[in-house]
């Protein structure tokens, strides 16, 4: 992905930026107020408008190789479920399914590039950028907060940077992507559930940040 193509994409977004509303745009103050620094601290914020392209194709076909070349990284598999290339994160979702996540506005450029290399191979590429928003939960207590409602084993021995998982947090399906060891987690959540999940996280955080 070149910097030029990403910049070109952003211009189209800028033109309509004043019309956009993210699912949690109205909650920024509450998310900030519910966050706390310190050795037991935890922070919550929305990262709105991330580009998200759902890619499905045969993982061992020629198209997969072309996609990997175009992205500049192999498509991740179940063991190392996230690869990072430039500003893009490629998340493994299933044996023939990935989510390419990038900065706001990059979806059209990435889509165009991938569609070209896909060619006539059977597969699908679906822009889901508006389908989900992203909550970022970070800080020393972030794992404990998630453990209030996530039955996944999040201990560093079992899950860490470079891992993602589709699972549930308080009954809400999320894509969980750990981005650093502090720890910092991204919770990619369908827009309709975002408000509930944010409320739930704030409530769970209130135990660590009285």
């Amino acid at each position: 992905m070149t910097a030029d193509s990403l910049a070109a994409d952003n211009r189209a977004v800028d033109r309509l930026a004043h019309l956009r509303r993210s699912p949690l745009g109205g909650l920024a103050d509450r998310l900030a107020a519910g966050s706390a620094p310190g050795p037991r601290g935890v922070r919550l914020r929305e990262i709105p408008y991330l580009a998200q392209l759902n890619l499905r194709l045969d993982p061992i076909g020629p198209a997969a190789r072309r996609v990997a070349e175009a992205l500049g990284t192999p498509l991740p598999d179940r063991t190392a479920s996230v690869t990072v290339t430039g500003a893009l994160r490629v998340l493994w979702l299933g044996p023939d399914e990935w989510l390419v996540v990038g900065p706001d506005g990059t979806a059209p450029g990435v889509e165009q590039t991938l569609r070209q290399v896909l060619g006539d191979e059977p597969g699908s590429l679906v822009d889901l950028s508006a389908n989900r928003t992203t909550l970022e939960l970070s800080g020393p207590s972030a794992r404990a907060v998630l453990e209030h409602g996530c039955s996944l084993d999040l201990h560093p021995r079992a899950f860490g940077p470079g891992h993602c998982a589709q699972t549930t947090v308080s009954k809400v399906q999320v894509i969980l992507d750990q981005t650093d060891a502090e720890p910092t987690y991204r919770l990619l959540v369908r827009a309709s559930f975002a408000r509930y999940l944010a409320d739930w996280l704030l409530d769970a955080m209130s135990e660590s940040t009285p």
């Binding site: 509303r21 109205g26 308080s170 009954k171 309709s192 559930f193 509930y196 409320d199 769970a204």
Partner: peptide
Amino acid sequence: GRERGPLFDPVRTTPVHP
């Protein structure tokens, strides 16, 4: 636990909800 009141069950809303 905390699954009571507004957190009893996930609530889904559309972008037009506000």
